[in-house]
């Protein structure tokens, strides 16, 4: 029953690019299915150390990212919810959100980024896959080619 995977999907979005690519990738699966899509953006807190940018500044950015998501789902028959969360551990916060929304799946597209970058800033994808007890689905972010 692959359909049920897309009943209530939590879609983590970190920035404009992946808001757009994720929306594009998810749309074909949820179109006309009456699914609920919950876009989640997490504002990472340093939990004591000063944050890189003020919360308010990042809240503004989050609003814009949600707008990008909404544009991506424009004209698609789904219920779109957006959720702004705060946490020191981005992956754990996304999983918490998935629980609270009783999501069927967490869906996203590969986010790229070099190993160095992941080492220094924390590899959210890896943590999400490792520690989620909600099914995690990674969709291709491009047309499937011979690669």
């Amino acid at each position: 029953m692959p359909d049920s995977f897309f009943q209530r999907v939590v879609v983590p979005v970190a920035n404009h690019d992946d808001a757009a690519t994720t929306a594009d990738a998810v749309v074909p699966y949820v179109e006309n299915s009456g699914a609920t899509v919950i876009a989640v953006h997490v504002i990472e807190k340093a939990g004591g150390a000063p944050d890189k940018a003020s919360v308010e500044q990042r809240e503004q950015t989050a609003e814009e990212i949600f707008d990008t998501v909404a544009d991506g789902f424009e004209g698609v028959a789904v219920t779109l919810e957006t959720e702004l969360r705060y946490g020191t551990d981005v992956a754990a916060t996304i999983i918490d959100a998935a629980h609270e929304w009783t999501a069927s799946t967490i869906v996203f597209t590969p986010r790229g980024g070099s190993r160095w970058r992941k080492l220094l800033s924390g590899d959210v994808t890896h943590k999400l896959v490792e520690s989620s007890d909600v099914p995690v689905l990674v969709l291709p972010d491009r047309e499937v080619s011979d690669a």
Binding site: E44, A46, G47, G48, A49, P50, K52, T88, L120, S121, G122
Partner: peptide, 9 residues
């Protein structure tokens, strides 16, 4: 945006 933690601070 290298991650710094409250613990280190």
């Amino acid at each position: 945006g290298v991650k710094e933690t409250g613990a280190l601070q």
